[in-house]
Design a protein around this nucleic acid. Structure first.
Lengths: 242, 242
DNA sequence: AGGTACTATACAACTAGACAAATCATTACC
DNA sequence: GGTAATGATTTGTCTAGTTGTATAGTACCT
C-alpha cells in the first residue's frame, strides 16, 4: 500500500501561516497589537496553548514580539545606519526613506562616575547631565542611547532638551555650532533584561554597543555617549571620510 | 544545543539591581530623592507596579525608603543629629528628609531621687513627672530617652503628653515658650539587655549616652533628660552656637 | 507501550487604570 | 507677614486583563 505523502499539518502551523499571511497582507501594521491569545483561541476554536505554539513560531522567525501583560505586537524590518565622523540620526534615516523619531525616557543631572568623568575630562564627582532614550524608525525601536554632558559647560541643556529632543539642535542652542566624533568603540553584547524590554527584543538577543566621545571644533569633549543597537534591526556601515 | 543558561530573572529584579548599582556608583547620594516611580517606569519602559516591586525589594534590604507623597530616598549612611543649645528631634530629622516619630512607653508621676532632685534644683523627695520612650527615624529606633520634669511647676503635663507625645509642644502648652540646653554630658557605653531590646540592637552594641538639663528663658531648670543613642545609627554633630 | 498533538486548569509575572492618602508649592486672605 | 486654602505631585492600594509557565489529562497514531 503506497503510504500517502503525509503533509502532516499541525493545527498550530496552520494558525501561524494564517497570521503570517494576514500580517503580510497588511491587516496588522508593524507595531500594532494582535488580538489576545484568548481571542485568537476563540476565533480558531482551539486551546490557548495551540495558539501560543503558533505565535512562538512567528516570534522565533522575528515576525512578532510578545510582551507579558501587554500583548503580542508585529515587528518591523532592518535599517541601514552609516557610522561616520558625523553621526546624525535623523538625517541618516530620513535619507533612506524611513521616519525617524526619538523618545527620551530619562533626563536628569547627577554626579559623574569615574568613567564618565575621565571621558569628559572632568574632575571625579563633577555634575553631568544624563539623557537616555530610544531611537525609532517607523515607530520600531532601533537603538537605545545614553548621552552624558558636562553640566558646568551647558547649564540650561536639560531645559532645552525637554522641548527639542534633538541633541544636535540642543547643542547648537548651547553654543556648539558643530561637533565631530573623536573616538568610537564597538562591541558585541547580549541584551540584558531591561535593554531587551526597551528594544522589544527577547532577552539575550544580539546587541551592538557603541561607545564614543564627541568633541567641539576646539577639541574639547562635549558629549560622552553609549548606544545599544538592536543587532537584527540595523546594519552599521562605515561611511567614507568626508 | 544552543546555549540556554537563562536563569529566571524577573524584570523587577533587574531594575532593582540597576538601581542598586547606580546608588553604589554614587549617582544618587544618601539622603537624595530618587526619580519618581512614574519617571523610573518610563525610563525602564515598564509599568509603575513593576518598579514598585523592585523598590520594595531595595527598601526591604534597607537601601532606600519611601515616603508617601514625597518620594523615595536612598537610606545609606547614619542619621546626623545636631547637638546644639536647642535640640529639637522632629525638626532635625524632618530637615534631612526622614520621617521622625516618637513612641512613649511609660508615663508616671513619682518622687525624685537624689540625682534628679539636684539636677532640677528641687528638694529631695519632691514629685516629678517621668516620661520614657523611643525616638524613631523612618520606623527605625534611633534613641531611647527618659525625661524628668518638676511636677509642682507642670501639674497637667502628663495629660498633655498623653496626646501630643511631643515634648516641645507639651512644654509650650504648660507655659514654657522656649527652652535651651544648659549642660550636656556624653559617655560611651555598652547596650544592656533591656536597652538592646528596645533599640533592636544586639546586646553589647555601642551606645552613646547623653545626660542634659534644659532650662527656660529665666534659667530655671524645666527638664532633666537622659538619652541613649544607638551608636551605629547616629553621628552626633556639635552645632554652632546661635 | 510509547510518542505526539492538543485540551484543561491553575498560578505567576506584568500591564493598565483608577482612586485614596500624604506631601509640597503656590496663592489668597486677613 | 504669617496663615489658611488650594491644587498639583507622589506614593499606597485595589481591581481587572494579558502573557508565561507548569502540571495533568485525553485522543490518536505507529
Amino acid at each position: 500500500m503506497p503510504p500517502a505523502p503525509k503533509p502532516k499539518a499541525p493545527i498550530w502551523a496552520a494558525i501561524a501561516e494564517t497570521l503570517r499571511a494576514e500580517i503580510a497582507a497588511g491587516h496588522y501594521a508593524p507595531g500594532t497589537k494582535l488580538p489576545t491569545e484568548a481571542a485568537l483561541a476563540a476565533r480558531f476554536g482551539v486551546n490557548r496553548h495551540t495558539v501560543r505554539h503558533g505565535l512562538a513560531h512567528l516570534a522565533e522567525a522575528g515576525l512578532v514580539h510578545a510582551r507579558r501583560g501587554s500583548g503580542v505586537f508585529v515587528a518591523g524590518g532592518s535599517t541601514d545606519y552609516p557610522l561616520g565622523r558625523r553621526v546624525r540620526f535623523h538625517q541618516n534615516l530620513a535619507a533612506s526613506g524611513r521616519t525617524p523619531s526619538r523618545q527620551i525616557s530619562r533626563l536628569e543631572t547627577r554626579r559623574a562616575d569615574a568613567a564618565e568623568a575621565e571621558a569628559l575630562a572632568l574632575q571625579p564627582g563633577a555634575e553631568v547631565h544624563v539623557v537616555e532614550g530610544l531611537s525609532l524608525a517607523d515607530g520600531v525601536p532601533i537603538a537605545a542611547f545614553r548621552s552624558v554632558f558636562p553640566a558646568a559647560r551647558f547649564p540650561g541643556l536639560i531645559a532645552i532638551l525637554r522641548e527639542t529632543s534633538s541633541i544636535t539642535t540642543a547643542l547648537k542652542a548651547a553654543g556648539v555650532a558643530d561637533y565631530t566624533r573623536a573616538s568610537t568603540r564597538l562591541t558585541a553584547k547580549s541584551a540584558s533584561a531591561t535593554l531587551a524590554l526597551q528594544l522589544q527584543l527577547s532577552q539575550g538577543a544580539p546587541i551592538l554597543r557603541s561607545v564614543g566621545v564627541n568633541v567641539d571644533a576646539a577639541g574639547a569633549p562635549v558629549e560622552y555617549g553609549k548606544t545599544w543597537f538592536a543587532g537584527d534591526r540595523v546594519t552599521l556601515t562605515v561611511a567614507p571620510e568626508e
